[in-house]
Each structure stands twice: as C-alpha cells, then as structure tokens.
Write a protein that binds this DNA or RNA. Sequence first.
DNA 1: ATGAAAGCGCTAACAT
DNA 2: ATGTTAGCGCTTTCAT
Lengths: 324, 324
Amino acid sequence: MEVARAAGVSKTTASDALRRSGRVSEKTRQLVAETADRLGYTPNLSARSLRAATTGAIGLHLPEVLTRSEYYMSFVFGVIDQASRHDYDVTLLTSRGARARAAFHRLDGVVLGDPLVTDPVVHGLLASSVPVVTCERFTGDAEPAGTVRSDHAAMLSLLFDRLHDAGAARPALLASSTITDWGAILQRAYREWCERRGTAVRLRELPYGAPPEVTQDEIRALLSAEPGIDALVCAPDGSAAAALPVLREEGREVGRDVLLAACVDSGPLAHTDPPITAIDLRPREAGAACAELLFDLLAGRADEGAVRDLPIGLVERGSTAPRG
Amino acid sequence: MEVARAAGVSKTTASDALRRSGRVSEKTRQLVAETADRLGYTPNLSARSLRAATTGAIGLHLPEVLTRSEYYMSFVFGVIDQASRHDYDVTLLTSRGARARAAFHRLDGVVLGDPLVTDPVVHGLLASSVPVVTCERFTGDAEPAGTVRSDHAAMLSLLFDRLHDAGAARPALLASSTITDWGAILQRAYREWCERRGTAVRLRELPYGAPPEVTQDEIRALLSAEPGIDALVCAPDGSAAAALPVLREEGREVGRDVLLAACVDSGPLAHTDPPITAIDLRPREAGAACAELLFDLLAGRADEGAVRDLPIGLVERGSTAPRG
DNA sequence: ATGAAAGCGCTAACAT
DNA sequence: ATGTTAGCGCTTTCAT
C-alpha cells in the first residue's frame, strides 16, 4: 500500500481501512479512502489471491461446437448473474486444453455446461483438485463435486403423451447424440414411451452441433423412411426450426398433417408459422443453479456429490394443436 | 517451487526447467518435468501475475440486456478463440459489478462488445488504466485504445437499394435505439438514403433488448400508421423473425406484397418461410478482430486510438425476391 | 549450468 | 487504534 501510505499511515492501516475490517477509526478510514480515490488506487488482485489462496473467480466451460445457441448464452448469463452476486468473476475456459490445466490455480471452482464425454478438457477438469459442478450428469466415470439436473425423461414422456392425445399415433424423434447425458436420456425415454404405448420406434440421431443442412437432410431421410410419421419431436437445438420448411416442402401442414415439437425452446420458435411447441429448459435458471451449488460447495453449505433438481417446463404452441 | 525442489534442484532451476528458459541442461529439465508431473504440480498463476505484473487474462463486457442473442454468443467465441491462441483467458464482466473490476489488476485489457452509452461499467472501464477495445464506436466522450468497426451505413444503403430495385417504393425501418453507435448509424443511413431517393422517412424505434411482444406491437403500429409500406427492414436482433407472423396476420405475403430484411443475420432466418434476407455482421470475426487488436496494442504492434475495419456481408434470401 | 537472495503487493499475526 | 514483521509462490538479478 505504498501509494496510500502517502496518507501518512502504515500499509496495514491503509489495507484495513480499505477493506473496512473495523480495525481503524472512522476518521482514518475516511482519510485513506479519500487518498486512495485521489490517487486512483486499485488493489492488486493477484497479490490478494496469492496471500489468500483464493482467487475470486470461477471457470465456465461449454461445448465449443455450439457457437450459436441461445440456450448456452442464457446459461452463461445465469452463471454470471449468480457469480457477481457473490462478487466473483467468471472465466471462460476453451477446449484448447493446455490452458485449462494451468488455470486451475486461478479458479476457485468450475461449472461445466453439458459435459461431453468426448471432451478432453472436461476430463482434465474433473480430474483436477478444484470443485466442479456439472449441468446434467457426466456420463464418463469421473464424479463431479456437484450436479444440477432436470427430469428430462418425465418431460419428454409428457410431451409424447400430449402428442398422442392430440391424435398422433406414429410419433418420431430426431435425436441428439448420446455424448451428452441429456441426449442419452431423451433417446431412452422415447424408447420406453414407445414400449409402453406399443408403438414402433422411429428415431434418427444427429451428431452434436450438426449444421442446418445436415439436419434437414436427416429429416428428409427420416420422412422418406417412415412416411407414416404424424408427429416429429426434434431434440437438437435449432433442429425444429430447420424442420419446418422441410415438412412444408413435403406438402405436410404442420399442426394438422403432422405435429412438431422441440426439446429446446428458443425465441424464434414462438414466432414461426405456426409457432412451435417446445420444452423450456430454463437455461438461465440452470446456470444460476450451477453457480449457486458451486458456491455452496465452496462454503461448505453443500456436500461433495450433491445433486440438485431444476424444474423445466412445456410451452405448448400451435404446432401441436389438437386435430380439429 | 518447493515441491519440485524435492527433485534435488533449487527453486530457480526448477522454475527455469519448467519454463524451458534454455538455462538448464536437458537432463535436469527432463528430471524436473517428470517430478512435477508425478507430484501433479501446477504453477500458481496469482504468484506469477504478481511477479510479472501481467495477468494472462483479458476481460469481455457485453450489454446485459441481450441474454438471448446468437450474435453475441458468436462474438464471445470469436474473442475466446483469439485469446486462447495467445494463451490468454477471457473473463466476463457484468454490469452488476458496481466497481469496475477490470481496473483491479486482474486483466491486461478489455474488449467491449457494443458499448452502450447508458452503461456505467462501460464508462468505468474506459476511465480505467487498462487498454480497451470496443466493437463499434463508443458514442460517449471517452476514447478507447482501439476500435473495430464496420461500414454499416454503406451496407444498409446497399440493402435499401436492392429493395428499391426489387420494386419497393416505400420502404420502412424498424430501428434500434441510438444508445449504441450501430443503432445510430443505421437510423442516419436510412434517413440519408430516403433523402437521396426523395422518399418519405418511415421509421419506428425500438428500445434496446425489447421483448418480442413489444416488437410486434410496434410493427403493427408502424403498419397501421403507414399502410403503404412495401418493404420493412428490421434492425434489432430477432425483430425480423417476429415481424413475419405480424405481416402474415395483416394479410401481406412476404416476398410479394411486402419485402422483409434483417440487419442482423442469425440461424433461424435461413429457415423461415420465406427465408429472410439479412446483413451478416460476421460476429465471430468481429470478436476475433477485437481481441487481436487488443493483443496488438498490448504488444505495441498497434497504436493508441487504432481503428480497424471489419467487412460485413449481405445474404439475400426469398423475403426480398424481385417482384415477378 | 546452477544457487542464493530479493521483492512483486498484499494481509494475518504479533507487537505497541 | 495503529505500526512492524513475515511470507504467500514466483521470477529476475547477481553470484558462483
């Protein structure tokens, strides 16, 4: 605190004054505060971190494939929101591995949005000493310190029930890759639903982060392989919007000839024609819940291996209107 | 390096070995590397930062209103991509952190995506001692160390020319707020275009981050105030998609009765019916360019006040097809 | 080619 | 209520 010592007090006094530790008199506190302000002083966080063995920052890692996803953007802001509430910074970790390893001592903890089994950084982080909270379970063998999850199976089952009630007898699933737990759960839930209902499984899987063209080709393939399909549920983010023109080009009127629903809601789905029914994954809340759990773990308010539940919702729109 | 000293060498040697400073013999380097690996050693970045007076991290600040925006998500990944190429971390700054934490010596520099004049954090950062690069000019009075900008005026003018060529005589602009430079430029460019063409100005401004309902109400108001409109250009991200159902509900066929275009391209716009013409702002490249400029400034490869240009594109789709 | 020592800015522990 | 000292883990002299 050599700068603020120019206020005529010792380093310690200045330090204590600025951190309001209640050690110094109100008068000196004022004086120091003013001086610091005048000199444009800002504390050196590196030094503080070094001393305190705590960094005031948490990491956030996302699957890099998903450059364009409203879901993750909302998730990010959820994490940030909660972090800043605890006066923490959020550092984004990339899949360029070398760095992540080195970042360990710069972070007090890490949040993993949808950990891919195929991502080496994910493994690295889980193997490290910092506490890790994952959104959705990690299907690999490492155990995160905390997990936030939702009941996707129940929600998907509910969605198919609704489609069935609306008159769909041969619903299909455009599935997402099983490299995420979410993708795997959806496939399983769909198969189980089909079994319960005694319906044939009509499923097609897309790789994670597939571009729209690939998605559309897959949908065309699905439709030509299974012409009897009367409802289509699309798992990958953005795939339902991409399905709309394909269905139309096949001469099927969405909401009448064929019902359509998405497993990931997003802004545009509310404004297509017709608007598309979707599962609302509450991404912002999910991000916030992950961060919250991480802070609880750091503070000892939660136990290693804690699992928390995040409720999700179903937004029914015109694309699944009951048949007149 | 007390841990690695267990390899029988001094702190200095260990440090030099791990950083390959070329000081130590290959044999000792090997030995130290192995020991460090065995002990699971990771360098303490706080200590390193303290010593080096450099942090290995840059900050990124975005307008918080935009929770759901593909543009910003891509921008973020552009920044991250470039940062990790330079072996830097990226820390996200919120508007919530009342104190501009960047100045807290945790960051070597900051990138501001679309600085809002109304954002106090933006002012704080620009007033701080760290170099700041903004994407788009800052309309306040502070001067960033670097700026990446695009010729939005020319592109918008080109877009209106195309609409005109396609038969639109009374084009309107659903404008974005002027709290960003981008929003202001678009409004100005439109007015100038109208003047050049001798056309009346048909403009309506939306607040930044307006929800879809507000957007749609505004569009309805615009249409009822100016029934003669035969082309609509929507500036705010997502507003063109929201416009589509409104136009349809008014009985106008998009691409025939009325042309429609967006000032911000995004995935869904390619898959609406008809697909919507849009300006491609190249967000990922923009983010990368900002980060690159920042690193150039830090390394002295660019001068204070540098301005760089980022080319943008126009993606013409069915919504602006020339009238038969 | 390697060691020893100093010090980056901060704060906890021990004085006064 | 305030000052002094020590040391967090690292790297940069300066010495060997």
